[in-house]
Every structure is written in structure tokens, then in C-alpha cells.
């Protein structure tokens, strides 16, 4: 299992062939109370750095970018009824979508947990 982070505060966790994507604790904190999440549908092709999902607080709407290229296998349906999961459990039940990777080596260029931690501290 590998977990990686982007500079735009997404996390991606690879388990077998499928990776799970969400936003970090830092990001949910900056957003404030999340009130709405729009996740992509299964089958949607994603390209690295391009819009993949939308997350909204009362006063801000943010795009969540795809951390790597690939195809969506599942969006987190639970967020439709309970968007607060993004606040309470951003790296667990508050995940956004699962995807297969078309180019797993893209993961190598992302930050590991240690690197992300010091990146956030520098912000």
C-alpha cells in the first residue's frame, strides 16, 4: 500500500490495482464545513492535474484535481447524504473516488507522507 500527496492537497492510496483519492486534513480545514461534494461517475477518464470532483463549503467552491491519469471505478455515494464526512474523516470515510491508473509511475513524482507534512508546514 502506497499513499502519496499532491501540492494541491489531494491524497491517493494505491491498493492492488485500484487507488482511492480524497483531500487532506489540511484542505478540509482550510475549506471549513463541507456542504456539498460532486464526485465523478464510474468510467470517467481522468487526466493528471485536471478537474475530477468539486467540493463546496458555504463560501467556497473548489475543484479537486486528478492526482494521476486513469479511469474512475467508483464515486463515494455516501458523500451525497453526508458531506460532513470530508471534515470528520478526510482520509477515511470521506474519500472522493476510486480509480485505476493508466500510468502508475506518475505516483513516484508525488510527495510521500513525510514530504507532504513538511510542505504544509512551509505554507
Amino acid at each position: 500500500m502506497t499513499i502519496r500527496f499532491t501540492k494541491d492537497h489531494e491524497w491517493i492510496k494505491l491498493e492492488g490495482d485500484v487507488a482511492t483519492v480524497g483531500i487532506t486534513d489540511y484542505a478540509q480545514h482550510a475549506l471549513g464545513d463541507v456542504v456539498f461534494v460532486e464526485v465523478p461517475e464510474a468510467g470517467k477518464a481522468l487526466s493528471q492535474g485536471k478537474d475530477a470532483a468539486v467540493v463546496e463549503s458555504v463560501k467556497a467552491a473548489s475543484e479537486v484535481y486528478a492526482p494521476v491519469d486513469g479511469t474512475v471505478t467508483e464515486g463515494n455515494a455516501a458523500l451525497a447524504d453526508e458531506p460532513a464526512l470530508v471534515n470528520t474523516d478526510p482520509t477515511g470515510k470521506g474519500w472522493f473516488f476510486k480509480m485505476t491508473l493508466s500510468n502508475p509511475s506518475q505516483l513516484d513524482a508525488l510527495m510521500d507522507e513525510e514530504a507532504y507534512k513538511s510542505y504544509v508546514e512551509g505554507l
Binding site: 456539498f36 463546496e56 458555504v58 463560501k59 467556497a60 467552491a61
Partner: peptide
């Protein structure tokens, strides 16, 4: 006022 994230002052070009 609610669901303001649809609106120009937050979503701008989107």
C-alpha cells in the same frame, strides 16, 4: 442566502 457556490461571486467563471 444559500447554495451561493453556484453564483458568480464565488464560482466566478464556473
Amino acid at each position: 442566502l444559500t447554495l451561493s457556490t453556484r453564483e458568480q461571486h464565488i464560482r466566478r467563471e464556473k
